[in-house]
Structure formats: C-alpha cells, structure tokens
C-alpha cells in the first residue's frame, strides 16, 4: 500500500537528549574511534574545544529517536518490514559536546515515488538549549515495492 503523500510537512513531538559522559564513551568505543577527545574533557580542552566532544555521528542517537516517532505514525501506513535505510546526511554547525541538552522536532520533509519504491525523507533539526542549531539530520528511508504502479 502506498504511503499517504499528504503527510509531507507533518511534524511530531519533540525528542530530547542530555549528552552524558558514559554514553559518549560507549558510543566512541562501539565505533572503534580511539580519539581521546571523546574520552575526557582535558583532552578536549587541550585541543581547543570547551570540553569533551562526542563523535560526529553521535547525532545518530537523536536521529534514531526522531525516526522512531515518524515510523510509529499509523496514518503514514509504513510497513517497517519493507523499509531499508537508503541515505543519511548530517550537516553540523558545531560539534556535539558532553553536557549538551539537545532537542529536535521530527518532520517529514518529503514523500515521493521512483519506480516501484517510495522514498520517505525525514528531517531533524537538532538544537541546543540556547536554541542554536547543532546539526541537521536528513534520513531517507526506502519503502520497497509500495509505489502505485
């Protein structure tokens, strides 16, 4: 069944995340990045940053939370068994840091068909508690074989 194209532009409830030391260290270890800048604040300051950084793709934690909001929307008619993660984009305004309180409003940026597949583009504008943009995440999900022939 095709996705409901009228849902383009729909926004969902805000998700938020406090960036904690232990979480950042676990994430850096899981991706196999040994940079000390992700391990302690001293290394971050020594490199000229205000403190301990998170790896750039720590943004994925927020992106997964925001995507889950959209995927759970019954109106959309998404069959998750047919969904493949097609594309991912991040555009950073500054690095994510330990201690950041991040929030994002998930939004459906586009729904379009190409051949037998449909493309669902989700955006999350991740901001800090001062309202400044930290990173823009754009996720393209492919819904296989659900386009109207």
């Amino acid at each position: 069944m095709p996705l409901d194209p009228t849902l383009k532009g729909r926004e969902y409830g805000e998700v938020s995340l406090e960036v904690e030391v232990a979480h950042v260290v676990r994430f850096a270890e899981a991706i196999g990045d040994a940079n000390l800048i992700y391990r302690d604040a001293e290394a971050g300051r020594a490199a000229g940053h205000p403190g301990q950084l998170a790896p750039p793709t720590f943004a994925t934690v927020l992106q997964i939370m925001t995507s889950a909001r959209v995927i759970a929307d019954q109106d959309l008619g998404l069959n998750y068994a047919l969904v493949v993660h097609g594309e991912q984009e991040y555009e950073w305004s500054r690095p994510i840091r330990v201690g950041d309180r991040l929030s994002a409003v998930p939004r459906i940026a586009d729904i379009r068909a190409r051949g037998p597949n449909e493309y669902l583009v989700l955006e999350a504008d991740v901001r800090d508690d001062a309202g400044q943009r930290v990173v823009l995440a754009r996720t393209t999900l492919l819904s296989r074989g659900t386009a109207v022939p």
Binding site: I37, L53, P56, G86, E89, E91, W92, P95
Partner: peptide
C-alpha cells in the same frame, strides 16, 4: 572532528 561540516552517504 569539528572540521567535518557535512556528509551524505548512500547505503
């Protein structure tokens, strides 16, 4: 890490 400004990948 701050020097990486944007990335777009296709899986």
């Amino acid at each position: 890490p701050a020097a990486l400004r944007r990335i777009r990948v296709q899986f």
